[in-house]
Amino acid sequence: MTWISILLFLMFFSFFLFSIWPLLWGEIVNDKESHDLINALERRKSILYREIQYLDNEYYIENINAGDYNSSRTELVSEISEIIDQINLQSSKQGI
């Protein structure tokens, strides 16, 4: 009976120790948020690329007229170039 209690106590105590362990470490610098930003931009870029693909396809099967197609495409391309600029800026900040 008692040894089970001791075992349980040890187990719960080890849970506690496990979770407060990082607090005993030295200062950690968290520089990962900028990674997130680049990831987000990359993701946005790939979405836009797919949008262009989709648009091309719609145009190809004559589901959209030339005027709309051209204006949409220019818009998407300009948005992509903006994002690429931002990605470059962020990467250079990090010195990658």
Partner: peptide, 20 residues
């Protein structure tokens, strides 16, 4: 306050909660 150790510890606690 952004002390990353707090986050790491809290995340471990969240894992412990789920395990329990």
């Amino acid at each position: 306050n952004g002390d990353y150790r707090l986050f790491l510890s809290a995340r471990r606690m969240a894992i412990v909660v789920s395990f329990l």
